[in-house]
Nucleic acid binder design. Sequence first.
DNA 1: TAGGCCATCTGGTCCT
DNA 2: AGGACCAGATGGCCTA
Length: 358
Amino acid sequence: MLSRLFSEVLPDVQRLAADWVADNENDECKDKDGEHEPCHLEDDDLDEPLEGSSRAESEMAGDDDEDDEAEEGECDGENSGDKPKKRGPKKRKMTAARVERSKVRRMKANARERTRMHDLNSALDNLRKVVPCYSKTQKLSKIETLRLAKNYILALGEILRNGKRPDVVAYVQMLCKGLSQPTTNLVAGCLQLNTRNFLTEPCSDGARFHMPSSPFSVHPYSYRCSRISSPHYQPGSSALNVRSHSYAPGYEAVYPPGGTSPDYSSPDYEAPHSPPVCLNGGLSGRQQEPSEADRNYHYSMHYSGLTTSRPSHSIPYGPSGAPRSGGAHSENIPPFHDVHLHHDRAPPYEDLNAFFHN
DNA sequence: TAGGCCATCTGGTCCT
DNA sequence: AGGACCAGATGGCCTA
């Protein structure tokens, strides 16, 4: 890849260098060796956006005529004579060849930097695929991806440490700790949860999430309630009321073609009917029924093998959190369109599942 | 239009 | 000398 980049860049470099030499043909004078020596190199020619930034710049630009006694081939003698000589290493003459080399070096460095950043972004993309809530069309930002990954690792660690199913609300809270509100809504939506249900009090700015009976030691954290609040909010509603949903901006509930609506007959549902959280909006893309692997995988990786200690929390997680092996509600959960907890992978989590199966 | 996010360029620093 | 890594600067794009 690097070689390909260079093969694309080098011709341009050579062309630019040739252009530069041609452009400066009339402005340059020859030093005593007969080598072309530019009198003044304009910043534009050197693509130097910052002024007085470094030694390298002055070296490249060769504009230090006032203190460079080595410039024997000066075109004009305006600075010769009066100014005291400065100490330090003499600056080497900026010949056209050196300027060209510097430019080539700089462009090569730029290409490397681009490649490096692309690799970094590729790694971030891979990370996005293994953290909860992955969308091909609306990616989490870099910082949100890293935060969510960190929270995810901590949450999985808690599960391993406790060896039992944690409170799902606390789980989501842990995942969302420190995330922006849109990302929080996204993650919560993926888990068929309503973030506002985390609140134990009517919304007001500065309200804090409360985590009763949380198996995690998660510190409460502030959210701007104005973004979480909903006219449907009922302080007394179940903390796991999966039928009252908040939507991240631009997201909307979408039923799959031929899909079925959630099973509202389940006693797990207590709130007034409202659309399930199937984040779409800018998150379009996943238009098909999830594979069986998806159904069995996603959320199961978190809780697989764990028994439900509190039936009221037996949320049908659907594609984003379907109970393992065709749970009772799994068929009633519309799949997410594009947004889902995980996909296209399994091996590392099978180990985790195996742990819980033992 | 402000703010967030991003890609890119750039120079500095460290290391080989 | 050159590569890797980093952080600052800049400008573009998008969204509320």
